[in-house]
Structure formats: C-alpha cells, structure tokens
Amino acid sequence: MFEIPQINLKDKVSAQEWQTRVDLAACYRLMVMHGWDDLIHTHISARIPDSEHILINAFGLAFEEVTASNLVKIDINGNIVDKECPFEINPAGFTIHSAAHEARHDDLCVMHVHTNETIAVASLEEGLLPLSQYSMFALASLSYHGYEGLAVNHEEKLRIQEDLGDKNFMLLRNHGALTMGKTIGDAFMHMYDLTRACQIQLQVMATDMKPIYAPQSIIDGIKVQANIVHTGKTGGETAWPAMLRRVYRKYPDFAD
C-alpha cells in the first residue's frame, strides 16, 4: 500500500497561507461530502493572497486524503515552489486552472468538476435553462467553452480565457463545469448553485411536461436581490463558516 508522506506545515508558513490551505482542504472534503469528486481527477486551486503562488492538490491522492499541509504550492506555470515537497501535481489538469488564474488575478479560487449533472447539461445544445432559482444565479454570469479533448494543449488556454471573460460560472461542453470566486467559499457556493441548477433541469426534463421559464428580468436583477438577502456579503461569505464547521465535524484531520 502506498503510504502518504506525513508533513505538517502549520508553523512553517505565513498565517495567511495557512488559512488558505485550511479553507482549500475543507473545500476538497466538501467535494467528497457532496459526491462531486472523480477518483483522483479534477482540481480546486487557490492563489495565496498577496502572492503569485497557487495551491493545488497532490496528484494521486483521493480528495478525502487532502489536508492543509499536503496541498502543493506552485507557480503559474505549474512548477513546484518547494523543492523538498514529496508530492507531484497533474500538469495536464492544471492547464484549465492556470488559464483561469492568469486571466482573473483578483479571483483567488478556481473550482472544476466532472459531475454527471454538469456534464449532461453542458452537453445539451440549449445548455442551462432558466428553470429554477439556482439557475438564475448561474445564468447571470455564465459562459461556455467548447470541447477540445483532454486539456493538454497549451494553445487552448487562450480560448478558455476568451470564453471565460468576466463570468463566474462556466460549462465546459461534454466535460463538466468550472466556477470562479474571490474567496474559496464563493467558488464553492457558485458550484453548489450550478450543480443544483443542473440537477433540477434534468429532473424537469425527465417529466416530459412543458416547463415554465423564468423571465430574463429576474436573471438581470438576481445579483441585486442576493445582495439584499446576504446583507452586503457574498453567498460564500455567509455560508462558508457553517461549511467549515461541517467539515471539522466529519473530517477533523483535514486541517493537519
């Protein structure tokens, strides 16, 4: 059995980096809790605030094995910063993330999933439809990227960046979904909303009944309404402390 190298970086990095590590490791555990993980594939990456360095999962670890300390610190080109790091990353898997981080420097977190629901809706010509309140949030800031096979072509990065633009939600055709966030909590809540929207759309379509579509005016005003609900905070800021408590209860080792 492969033994995971045990390291503890809590007192060896800045407080800001450690908090980013804790939040990111929690997000990986939330992926497991929601059934969004895909064996050892897909990634969540986060830029360390006031830094050009990015944290990402070690390739080969299941998401329930990710901890704050075994996240790997890399530069924008995917080079591991700590030469004594006992882990590797998946260079091909970082293509999408590096494209997003390069284009959106103020957004600290990029989350990418291969869930059945997001792949299914991304594979529909119509894409996401205005069928639920969850879809309103995504449709207010949604883009699409066409399928180009495995993300190993460096030239695809430019097309990802052009398609992403200033949007916080992206459906990758035949592939999955991506969300952006100024915090890890924001990226998580964006993915939660997008996933629920896709799940509900598929359930509505399965009824074979005529659906009711929400008007464009609701989509256009949803951000203002959400700002009122969250009293000036983002959904991620409001929900993230509760999500952290949930992870601490189920996986207390994630913050090691």
Score class of each variant (00 low, 15 high):
62 A>L: 15
159 R>L: 13
177 A>Y: 00
89 I>W: 06
177 A>Q: 06
173 R>H: 10
151 A>K: 08
68 A>S: 15
85 C>Y: 02
67 T>E: 13
165 G>K: 02
110 V>S: 12
100 A>F: 05
83 K>Q: 08
108 L>W: 08
84 E>F: 02
71 L>C: 08
95 T>E: 11
122 A>W: 00
100 A>W: 04
103 A>F: 05
61 L>M: 09
84 E>I: 03
164 L>G: 01
123 S>C: 09
108 L>E: 06
131 L>N: 08
132 S>G: 09
170 M>L: 10
160 I>N: 02
151 A>D: 13
96 I>R: 00
124 L>K: 06
97 H>K: 09
138 A>T: 06
156 E>L: 04
103 A>W: 05
99 A>I: 00
107 D>I: 01
177 A>V: 03
79 N>M: 07
121 V>S: 03
81 V>G: 06
97 H>F: 11
86 P>L: 05
61 L>N: 09
93 G>V: 10
75 D>N: 13
84 E>C: 06
60 G>C: 12
92 A>G: 15
150 L>W: 12
102 E>N: 10
138 A>F: 06
122 A>S: 14
124 L>M: 14
74 I>C: 12
135 S>N: 10
110 V>T: 05
169 F>E: 01
161 Q>A: 06
128 L>R: 06
106 D>P: 02
172 L>T: 03
104 R>T: 00
152 V>L: 11
133 Q>Y: 14
70 N>A: 10
146 G>Y: 05
79 N>A: 09
115 T>Y: 03
60 G>V: 13
139 L>C: 09
77 N>V: 01
155 E>Q: 15
128 L>C: 07
131 L>K: 09
175 H>E: 14
128 L>A: 06
142 L>R: 04
140 A>D: 10
130 P>H: 12
164 L>P: 01
164 L>R: 01
152 V>A: 13
75 D>Q: 01
92 A>K: 12
170 M>R: 00
62 A>R: 15
105 H>Q: 14
84 E>G: 11
150 L>P: 10
101 H>M: 00
120 A>W: 05
140 A>C: 13
134 Y>F: 15
117 E>S: 14
139 L>I: 00
170 M>Y: 00
102 E>V: 08
107 D>G: 03
94 F>E: 01
148 E>V: 13
177 A>M: 02
163 D>Y: 04
155 E>D: 15
69 S>F: 05
168 N>K: 13
159 R>W: 09
61 L>A: 09
152 V>H: 06
88 E>A: 08
171 L>F: 04
168 N>F: 13
75 D>S: 04
87 F>L: 02
71 L>R: 09
66 V>T: 13
